[in-house]
């Protein structure tokens, strides 16, 4: 009889699910006659069984700086983009179209020569057309694994920083509605790829002059180029993208092409946070640039 071998990666445990045992709930503390110095009935780091330390944390570094900056940065962008999304004005200055209004899906859109005008929504749509399209990038970034970390820490203090006790009594994480919906992130990724394609098209259109003649370039063209590179880098560095191109495979050796792609996406993915911030800034800046041109506050320096 041949003995059953075990793979080098196996741990020294029987290969069944029969050893399943749930961690028993904490046993009641014994009546020792000594009053535990931690708060009675408290949970978390002040639970009775834990080392009695009244402070919520003992960190001496500036742990609050990162969540504060994150919250401030996100807040600034939310305020700016809300204003611009509802403004419904100053989003086109030939040949540039603001990324907030592209593609423009309503009949009330300004006509952009050769631009991303698709009148899917008829005259009954009276609000800003930006609202129709911004849902997708918004959903993409809202369910993004990096932004989740950023706003859970920055806005929800869950946790504010590592080893700093969070203020919430109960915590269920992403186990139930509404946060369980974070699991649909991949669908927003698919839409984000489409939106990035449209923005690429807009960037190509930026190689025209104000009379829609091809083969010209201005400072705005560079702004759009930088933006689209960052948008693509951010989109492709997505964790869902990494999973889809190869992460879900078990045998990389049987899929050399996907393995290679997975490696590339992984390289980008390591910088996902940086790309998230850079692309957020660049998309806001591209919009601001168009706004300044459209309001006449600034004239686009033309190169040729």
């Amino acid at each position: 009889m041949r003995l059953r071998g075990r793979a080098p990666l196996a741990l020294h445990r029987p290969p069944t699910g029969s050893t399943h045992r749930k961690y028993p709930p904490r046993r009641p503390t014994l009546a020792t006659g000594t009053e535990p110095s931690s708060q009675a009935g408290a949970s978390g780091v002040h639970a009775a069984s834990r080392a009695a330390i009244p402070a919520r944390h003992l960190r001496t570094d500036r742990w609050w700086l990162a969540p504060a900056c994150t919250a401030a940065g996100l807040l600034a962008f939310v305020v700016y983009s809300t204003w611009r999304a509802f403004a419904n004005a100053d989003y086109y200055h030939a040949p540039y179209v603001s990324p907030f209004y592209s593609p423009c899906l309503a009949q009330n859109c300004q006509t952009m020569h050769g631009g991303p005008n698709w009148e899917i929504f008829g005259p009954w749509w009276g609000l800003s057309p930006a609202l129709l399209i911004l849902i997708f990038p918004l959903g993409f970034r809202l369910t993004c694994y990096y932004y989740r970390k950023a706003y859970y820490r920055g806005f929800w203090a869950s946790p504010p920083a590592c080893a700093v006790a969070e203020p919430h009594k109960k915590y269920t994480g992403e186990t139930r509605f509404p946060l369980i919906l974070q699991n649909i992130h991949r669908y927003f990724f698919y839409f984000a790829v489409l939106v990035a394609c449209v923005l690429t098209f807009d960037t190509v259109l930026a190689f025209r002059d104000e009379h829609h003649r091809w083969g010209h370039m201005g400072l705005g063209t560079l702004v759009f180029l930088a933006n689209i590179v960052l948008i693509w880098a951010y989109t492709l560095s997505c964790h869902s993208c990494r999973h889809i191109v190869g992460g879900r495979l078990r045998h990389f050796s049987k899929h050399p092409v996907r393995y290679r792609l997975w490696g590339w996406v992984g390289k980008l993915n390591e910088r996902h946070m940086l790309l998230a911030w850079c692309s957020l800034f660049s998309v806001g800046f591209a919009d601001l640039y168009v706004y300044l041109l459209a309001t006449g506050a600034f004239a686009d320096p033309r190169f040729f």
Binding site: L3, R6, A7, R13, P14, P15, G17, T19, H20
Partner: peptide
């Protein structure tokens, strides 16, 4: 609580 590695049936040591 984590079920261990399950050895493939067709492979020996």
């Amino acid at each position: 609580e984590v079920p261990a590695f399950v050895p493939p049936a067709e492979l020996g040591p």
